[in-house]
């Protein structure tokens, strides 16, 4: 279970996402960090995380090609490191 893609994630409660033409901005009101999501597809993935048992199935649901999964895995890690998303306890 080392890949972030195999884990369940949720958007941090204090985070909001604003869509932009390049993708979107994620902002955490509590720690005042801002992250630029450079692909519209990534915005979609982040919004889908909550509804899927792991990040990988969110990627599939968003139609991210398998060859891009590793890059998106790094994206998920980065988003977690600035507390934009958090690990979700699986039921």
């Amino acid at each position: 279970m080392s890949s972030p893609l195999d884990r369940a994630w949720t958007l941090t409660p204090s985070v909001a996402i604003r869509p932009e033409t390049f993708g979107g901005l994620a902002y955490n009101f509590s720690n005042r960090k801002m992250v630029f999501l450079k692909r519209p597809k990534l915005v979609e993935v982040v919004r889908l995380l909550d509804r899927h048992p792991d990040a990988r199935s969110a990627l599939r649901a968003a139609g991210v090609p398998t060859c891009d999964h590793v890059a998106y895995g790094r994206a998920v890690e980065q988003l977690a490191s600035s507390d934009m998303i958090r690990l979700r306890r699986q039921v």
């Binding site: 993708g23 902002y27 720690n31 005042r32 960090k33 801002m34 992250v35 630029f36 999501l37 450079k38 692909r39 990534l42 891009d68 890059a71 998106y72 790094r74 994206a75 998920v76 980065q78 988003l79 600035s82």
Partner: peptide, 10 residues
């Protein structure tokens, strides 16, 4: 405001 660039993607 803190920020980071987006993840490495195509």
């Amino acid at each position: 405001v803190d920020h980071t660039a987006a993840p490495a993607l195509p």
